[in-house]
Design a protein around this nucleic acid. Sequence first.
DNA 1: GCCAACATGTAACCCGTTACATGATTGG
DNA 2: CCAATCATGTAACGGGTTACATGTTGGC
Lengths: 191, 191
Amino acid sequence: MRTSMKRSENKSRYAILGMLTIAPMSGYDLKKFTEKSMNYFWNENYAWIYPTLKQLEQEGLVVSSQEKQEGRPDRHLYTLTEQGRAELRRWLNEPTVFHETPRNEHLLKMFFADQVPLSITIEQMRFWREALQNMLTSLEDLDRQASVVALEQKVPQGRPYRLLALSYGLHMGRAQLVWCEETIAKLEGLP
Amino acid sequence: MRTSMKRSENKSRYAILGMLTIAPMSGYDLKKFTEKSMNYFWNENYAWIYPTLKQLEQEGLVVSSQEKQEGRPDRHLYTLTEQGRAELRRWLNEPTVFHETPRNEHLLKMFFADQVPLSITIEQMRFWREALQNMLTSLEDLDRQASVVALEQKVPQGRPYRLLALSYGLHMGRAQLVWCEETIAKLEGLP
DNA sequence: GCCAACATGTAACCCGTTACATGATTGG
DNA sequence: CCAATCATGTAACGGGTTACATGTTGGC
């Protein structure tokens, strides 16, 4: 575990505090939850979750309780404290600094594609299109279940925040796919 | 400088090799070029460029020459070697692993927005919209110059790869803005 | 009989950023 | 005269990933 974990820059803190507003969870649960419901805009990682949970507990933002299980490791369930909720709200109120350019390796290759034959670039694009298609399909599946999920997760009625977030994913996924298909068509039309 | 720079994972290598296909450049030039022409999908950083250039030189992928200047530090101009071009092509031919979820802090706040008053969320969204608007405007400016730039940069005629990359940025920028505006409208319509 | 899922954790490493160090020239 | 631009670099740090370590249970 790191000697000092700086308070300001670690976003996983807030993701974890946020998820714990839904229900008490273990490190394992938190990972599964991000994978199932937030994977189109967030990811978490055991090697970061477990140390962060300990840190949050030391700061009094969460409390842990152990659930004994037969033949399996104990589940360490973490529950949000009032201080934890306050810290989450503090962050939610802060203005969000516009994020840095995420690097896109696909586009980097497109940008220097004049160094290889056209056929290679078309192949790369088809590969990308397929990946996008799969991603979008799984998002659409999520969307079909989402109204249920959203209600279960105790979001106040008429405040469909999680559906709005999902809708962002759908907008972006579709836009990427549209560009991808346009671009493949253009490339295929070249001499 | 780092003791060992692993060969496989450092994408800046390829960005740099790619830019050097356009013209010999200094570290300073490379940084400026990314800022001017690639900032919507890539970024570079002096503290990474300079060590990487040295590394590339050691590997024989680039060669440097010094340009003496009066009253200013020398310019170290780096030129791509045939080996460098081969290495770039090798990478361009590789299938691109689909990139990990980029974390989106705006969406993370949206996802847990039930913890704060609606007015805060609307404010956050307006702030985001403004940033997106600015980004899109500067991309559209770039687009207006781009046909010239693309020709100057010796891309084979009829292979508008850099314009296609730019078009990706425009598609994404517009889609984000559309979602942002839809979402603000929805939030403003809530009780 | 084997693989996936359950469950928690650490060590090493790598990528990239921020801050520091230096200093001349040009334009407003 | 002050800020921005030109120009190159290093040290320290931080955030996040990969690989390692361990062991049970349930489904196919």
